[in-house]
Amino acid sequence: MEEFPVAKSSQRRRPDGVDDNTVEALGKLSEALETVERARGYLYDFHQLVGGADIKLDEAATMFENAGHPDIAAKIRTELIGLNVLDGRWTFQVVEEFDDGYWSTFRAVEKHARDNLVQGVRHVFEAEMKEDRRTEGRVGHEPEPPH
């Protein structure tokens, strides 16, 4: 296991007594949360794409009517427009259920771990890796932005 020096920035410093294994575990938990955040973004993309498609169905139905195909237009209007994407749910309900359940719980557990193990400090693992990899005194390698 590679050891990283304690970050010099007081904002991201590893609290006294916190071992490398704990910092690595918190780093992995943070990485998992970041992956879920990306998945959440895709869920919102899904929500907006399906909603946009539903609106386009109105246009398609009108176009079928104008082209002399009222039966196709009626089928679109009665069977597709307004159809639940999951049992009893439109996409906004899927997003809300995900946000209120899995996503909120994940964030709370990750925060609980940080609060209890490193006094709430975020990204300790990454801050220590940055400190190890940067060149002291080199422009663009500063430990923190200027305040």
Rank of each mutant, 00 (worst) to 15 (best):
R14H: 04
D71V: 12
R89Q: 10
D20R: 08
E24R: 06
F92I: 02
E96N: 07
P70K: 09
D45W: 07
D58N: 15
M63V: 13
H47K: 15
D20W: 03
T62Y: 10
Q48R: 15
Y44I: 13
Q93G: 01
D16P: 07
V6G: 13
I81K: 15
G17Y: 09
A60S: 14
E65Y: 07
F46C: 04
T22D: 00
R38M: 05
I81Q: 12
P5G: 11
F64I: 10
K8T: 13
P70Y: 11
L29A: 08
F98W: 05
E96D: 05
Q93E: 05
V23F: 09
V36T: 04
I72C: 05
T22M: 03
Y44K: 15
R77A: 06
E97V: 05
S9R: 06
Y42K: 12
L26P: 06
Q11E: 10
L86G: 07
F64Y: 13
D58Y: 15
F4W: 15
G82S: 05
F64W: 12
A73Y: 06
T35Y: 04
A39H: 13
R13T: 06
L83G: 03
V85E: 03
I76P: 00
E59I: 14
A39S: 12
A25C: 03
L86Y: 09
D20C: 07
R38I: 06
D16W: 07
R40L: 02
R40Q: 03
G17P: 05
D20G: 07
G27L: 00
E59A: 15
Q93L: 01
D71S: 14
G82E: 01
A60K: 12
L83R: 15
E31L: 07
D45I: 11
V36N: 00
A7D: 08
I72W: 01
D20M: 05
K56V: 13
R14N: 06
A32G: 05
T91K: 01
A61N: 07
T22C: 04
E37Y: 09
R40V: 01
L33D: 00
E34F: 04
L33A: 03
R77K: 15
I72S: 05
F46S: 06
D87L: 02
F98L: 01
K56L: 15
D16C: 04
L83W: 04
Y42P: 00
V95Y: 00
T91N: 00
L33E: 02
V36Y: 02
E97P: 02
F46V: 03
R77M: 06
D54K: 11
E59L: 15
G68S: 10
V50A: 14
T62F: 09
I72H: 04
Y44L: 12
Y42A: 09
T91L: 00
Y44C: 11
D58S: 14
I76G: 03
L83I: 04
P5S: 13
F4T: 10
A61L: 08
P70Q: 11
L83F: 08
E65D: 13
D54L: 11
G51L: 04
D71H: 14
D16Y: 09
M63N: 12
A53K: 12
K28V: 09
